[in-house]
Design a protein around this nucleic acid. Structure first.
Length: 342
RNA sequence: GCACGGGUGGCAGAGUGGCCAAUUGCAGCAGACUGUAAAUCUGCCGGUCGUAAGACCUACGUGGGUUCGAAUCCUACACCGUGCA
């Protein structure tokens, strides 16, 4: 019985902690669904929270690009941390490959995979598959389109696949990144050129055969969330995030060639660390930390709008982490789901 | 005490007679999302009514005044900053 338990929700709600608890109770293994924890060496800022003695065990797979393995925390396996180096351009497609390998392995051993993470898009693709006909990124094209204005990109897409442009919503139509990807897809497979929900779902070899799915959402009021986030940011500063970044920069990773430049908790330090080197310290630490907190707040909000939508219709499965006895309620819900057949 | 300078929406900061409920950034709120997703993008953002257009109210330190009309000019007062005593 291919069961899959998903724990989602915004940052700082304790998804991993809950996952570990449930893994112990239901003979499960954790699979991270986090677009940043896949990077080796980016630990403090991405909140890996690994015990000092955590050992990593690797699984041999057909994929040479990834290091697929697990850490064992409190006797529970935690998969998909540290999959690639910070300079690898990791995407949902990479995630789908890795996660499907891991989840099938867990199923094979008769255990329950528990997917926990804040990257809603990764979870969605894992559960539903990707319908973009496997159009690979065309970096040369992207580089070329980089400097184009929105109106110009729209013009190009109009010529390449007018139908696609018409199918986009107001927001996406003004989003250069989406326009670029649409052009990229259109150039690679002329015929449908329609990505996503409009296109035919092909190339789904990574699509999992999930027989039973339960999704649990963790949340709280923004007031609570922001408070937890702020506290956690302060902790990370104390855990020497700056030293971690300096170490990575020292190894040759840069703000441009790695995930450093796009990851909250890292990117905020760019100007500061650069200016330190040249004796021009423009920003003080205080304001960087504040910036970092604000970025996390906005991130939590974005996550909420994603998860609100994806959990629409299963409202009962949202749990407020400040509520009385919510953990028992979760356990009961999972137990009921886990025990029933069919 | 004298001389300058300053006060503007939750914050920062434009505006120096009508086009100002007031540029912009931040914060905040809502939304989008099918190979960059911790990314990227959209909308709202003084109050009330309205789907909207719009209407009305309250607002640019406080009180007066000039003017058809003031955040913008004059004046008095209280306050903050710097300089000289």
């Amino acid at each position: 019985m291919n069961k899959l338990l998903v724990i989602c929700g915004p940052t700082a709600t304790g998804k991993t902690a809950l996952g570990i608890k449930l893994a112990k109770e239901f003979n499960g293994e954790m699979v991270s669904a986090d677009s940043r924890q896949v990077y080796r060496g980016m630990d403090i800022g991405t909140g890996k929270d690994l015990p000092l003695n955590a050992k990593y065990r690797t699984l041999n797979t057909e994929y040479a690009d990834y290091r697929i393995g697990y850490y064992e925390i409190k006797g529970v396996r935690l998969w998909l941390y540290d999959v690639v180096g910070p300079d690898y351009k990791f995407s949902v497609a990479d995630y789908a490959k890795c996660a499907s390998v891991v989840i099938r392995d867990i199923w094979k051993r008769g255990k329950l995979p528990i997917v926990a993470g804040g990257t809603g898009f990764y979870i969605k693709v894992l559960v539903e598959g990707i319908g973009t006909a496997g159009a690979e990124p065309d970096w040369k094209l992207r580089r070329k389109l980089q400097s184009f204005k929105v109106a110009e990109l729209q013009g190009i897409l109009e010529k390449t696949c007018a139908e696609r442009l018409r199918g986009m919503n107001e927001s996406d139509r003004k989003n250069p990144r989406r326009l670029m990807r649409a052009i990229e897809i259109a150039r690679q497979n002329q015929k449908p050129c329609l990505a996503g929900r409009q296109g035919k779902t092909k190339n789904q070899k990574h699509k999992l055969e999930i027989k039973k799915l339960l999704t649990i959402g963790l949340t709280s009021s923004y007031e609570t969330l922001y408070g937890r986030i702020d506290k956690r940011v302060e902790e990370r500063v104390r855990q020497a995030i700056v030293e971690e970044i300096e170490g990575l920069l020292g190894k040759g990773y840069t703000w441009e060639n790695s995930a450093l430049g796009t990851t909250i908790g890292y990117k905020e330090w760019e100007e500061h660390l650069n200016s330190l080197n040249t004796k021009y310290q423009i920003q003080n630490t205080r304001s960087i930390i504040q910036r970092w907190k604000y970025d996390e707040h906005a991130y939590a909000r974005r996550q909420m709008t994603w998860f609100r939508k994806s959990l629409r219709g299963v409202q009962g499965y949202w749990f407020d982490i400040t509520g009385e006895g919510w953990e028992n309620k979760v356990t009961n819900l999972v137990a009921k789901w886990h025990d029933t057949k069919g």
